[in-house]
C-alpha cells in the first residue's frame, strides 16, 4: 500500500470509506428493523408465533402424569397411548346437569372448527363419579357429542383421585334433590396435553369451542 502514489491512495481510501458506509448502513438498517419488530411484537401490533392463548398457559411445562383408566368394554387405556396426539382432558359425570353438557358442546364445536386437524386431537372425558358411571354408559354419553370422544372411568376413588389431584382438579359429592340423586361439585377445567405428553394449557369453564380450536391449531403443530 505504501508504494502507491498519493492519488491512488486517496481514491482507494474513498472507495473503502464508501464501502464501509454501505456496510454500516446495511447493519444499521437490519438492527433498526429487528428492534422495530421487537417493539411491534411487544406492543402486540404484530402477531408472530402463538396467538394469545385463551386459557392459563403452563409456564415451564412438565410431563403430565401418566394414568391408566378404563374405557368402554372395561379395557385399560393409558394417557401414554395417545402420544402423538394432542389430548384434551375433561372431568365430569354423566348425571351432570349443566356444566358438563355445556363444555362437551363446546368441545364438539371445537372439533368441527378444527376440520382436518381434528384427527390430531383426542378428547377424553374422565368420570368423577365411578360409582354411577359405568364404562359403557360413559362411552355412550361422550359418543353422543362426537364419535371420536373417549370416556374413561376408574374402578374406585383412588384411581380417579390419582388423575385429578395433580391436575389441580377437585371433586366432591353432595346431596342434590331426591329426583337427581347426589350431585358432584368438580373443577370444570379442560387440560390440554401436547403430543409429547406435556401439560400446556388449562381452560377455565366458559371458553368457547372456536377459541379452543384457534389455540389448538397452534399447539398441534408445535
Amino acid at each position: 500500500m505504501t508504494e502507491l502514489v498519493d492519488t491512488a491512495k486517496v481514491q482507494d481510501d474513498q472507495l473503502r470509506s464508501k464501502r464501509a458506509k454501505r456496510i454500516w448502513t446495511a447493519v444499521g438498517l437490519i438492527i433498526i428493523i429487528i428492534l422495530g419488530g421487537i417493539a411491534l411484537i411487544a406492543t402486540g401490533t404484530w402477531q408472530i408465533g402463538p396467538p394469545e392463548f385463551h386459557g392459563m398457559v403452563i409456564q415451564a411445562p412438565q410431563p403430565a402424569n401418566n394414568f391408566t383408566l378404563y374405557g368402554a368394554d372395561d379395557q385399560p387405556i393409558s394417557l401414554r397411548d395417545f402420544r402423538g396426539k394432542t389430548v384434551l382432558l375433561y372431568f365430569g359425570y354423566t348425571f351432570c346437569p349443566d356444566v358438563c353438557p355445556a363444555t362437551m358442546v363446546e368441545l364438539k364445536q371445537m372439533m368441527a372448527d378444527l376440520g382436518n386437524d381434528a384427527e390430531n386431537v383426542q378428547v377424553i372425558m374422565i368420570s368423577v363419579d365411578p360409582e354411577r358411571d359405568t364404562p359403557a354408559s360413559l362411552q355412550d354419553y361422550v359418543s353422543h357429542f362426537h364419535p371420536s370422544f373417549i370416556g374413561l372411568t376408574g374402578h374406585n376413588e383412588d384411581e380417579v383421585l390419582a388423575v385429578t389431584t395433580p391436575l389441580g382438579v377437585f371433586y366432591e359429592k353432595h346431596e342434590g334433590t331426591a329426583a337427581s340423586g347426589y350431585l358432584i361439585d368438580h373443577t370444570a377445567t379442560v387440560s390440554v396435553i401436547d403430543k409429547e405428553g406435556y401439560l400446556r394449557l388449562v381452560y377455565p369453564f366458559g371458553v368457547t369451542g372456536s377459541e379452543m380450536a384457534a389455540d389448538l391449531r397452534y399447539i398441534i403443530r408445535d
Binding site: I23, V27, I30, I31, I34, I38, I41, I48, G49, P50, V57, Q59, A60, P61
Partner: peptide
Amino acid sequence: IASAALLVVFALAVGISGFVYGIQ
C-alpha cells in the same frame, strides 16, 4: 460484523424463545 450480528441474533433468540414460546 458477522460475530456481532450472531451475538445479537442469539440474544434475540433467547428473548423470542422466552417470551413467545415460554421456554424456561
